[in-house]
């Protein structure tokens, strides 16, 4: 401990007012802080015990969190009430350099750099071109290797390569997600069922919702598509035309399909046109029919891409 200093600065006395604590009765404050820190330490030990004897998140959180709360409070209070109360002051310095330093630095760029650049301008141009091109070259593998380009082929099949395709073709057998074929009588009037073309159960773009209306409703369900349904059952793409969420809520009383994501409402009785919300287009309808032994099959494919809009959509 040295009371004199090497550079001649005089040490300040320890009882300088700014070095005193803020607390009026520091000894009392210290007792409170000791209690807080001891409670904190008890909490940390408690966490080890809680972990050792069981796996209750509540006990773990109470001991660890409670411990940290007390411990942290104690340390903060030590800083606030018992350390030198100040206030202390520090000068700010200007950020900008002196004028001469500035002009020297600027001259390095404009004059030393300018000398080189102006003398060999073509080389500078090539440097810029090459640097830009190498970045572009690296972007090829970085971006293009990620995945396929969207294919413009609109023939059915290969739904992973195209936004316009589904696996539904004329004659596709209608199956549930666990690959059961569907008969007309599997659905009661008012019932709904999510189905897929056989062989693609669970596929996102192929998902179709079957709704069984009564025959009269189904006949008017889509103008000009009276024969697209089958004994009151109509089939629509389940992908919302807004953002592609499954349109999974069917309100039987009003014959409306509701998308739970952004609350677009589609009127099933009018060919699933959007009546409300942000969805811009009707859900595409899938024509269906029944085979002679009563199983549902597709009677064609969708006449337009399913799901949300995209640039290449005609």
């Amino acid at each position: 401990m040295s009371s004199s200093t090497s550079n001649g600065q005089k040490p300040v006395p320890v009882d300088l007012p700014q070095l005193r604590p803020l607390a009026k009765r520091p000894e009392h404050t210290q007792v409170l802080i000791i209690i807080c820190m001891l409670l904190g330490i008890a909490g940390f030990i408690g966490f080890m015990v809680a972990y050792w004897v069981g796996n209750q998140s509540q006990w773990q959180a109470a001991s660890l969190g409670g411990g940290m709360l007390f411990f942290g409070f104690g340390v903060t209070a030590w800083g606030k009430y018992l350390m030198p109360r100040g206030p202390f002051v520090e000068e700010r310095h200007d950020f900008d350099s002196s004028t001469s330093a500035r002009s020297e630095f600027n001259a390095v760029i404009t004059q030393r750099g300018g000398l080189v650049a102006k003398r060999r301008g073509v080389l500078l141009g090539l440097l810029a071109l090459g640097s830009g091109l190498v970045g572009l070259a690296l972007a090829f593998p970085l971006l293009r290797s990620l995945g396929p380009n969207p294919s413009k082929d609109t023939s059915a099949g290969n739904t992973n390569d195209s936004l316009s395709n589904t696996n539904w073709v004329k004659g596709s057998t209608v199956v549930t997600v666990d690959n059961r074929r569907v008969k007309v009588d599997d659905l009661e009037v008012g019932g709904v069922l999510t189905v897929f073309p056989a062989g693609n159960a669970g596929s996102s773009p192929d998902q179709v919702i079957l709704i069984r209306l009564d025959n009269a409703q189904a006949a008017q369900a889509a103008p000009g598509r009276a024969d697209w349904g089958c004994q009151g059952i109509v089939a629509f793409s389940k992908l919302c035309t807004h953002l592609g969420c499954p349109v999974g809520l069917y309100q039987q009383q009003t014959q409306q399909l509701v998308c739970p994501c952004h609350q677009s409402i589609f009127n099933v009785n009018a060919g699933c046109v959007p009546e409300f919300g942000p969805a811009p287009r009707p859900l595409p309808q899938l024509p269906i029919t029944a085979t002679s032994d009563g199983y549902l099959v597709a009677n064609g494919s969708f006449n337009q891409p399913v799901g949300p809009g995209f640039w290449e959509r005609p």
Binding site: G40, A61, A62, L64, G65, G66, G67, M68, L69, F71, G72, F73, G74, V75, T76, A77, W78, G79, K80, M83, P84, G86, P87, F88, V89, E90, E91, R92
Partner: peptide, 29 residues
């Protein structure tokens, strides 16, 4: 042209370390 307050060492360090404990405590609770 100046800053008035508490010095980094030890006062601010103590207060902010305690605050690290307390805000972590709230997260875990």
């Amino acid at each position: 042209k100046n800053v008035v307050g508490t010095p980094m060492f030890p006062t601010f360090m103590a207060k902010t370390t305690g605050f690290l404990f307390m805000s972590t405590a709230v997260t875990f609770l």
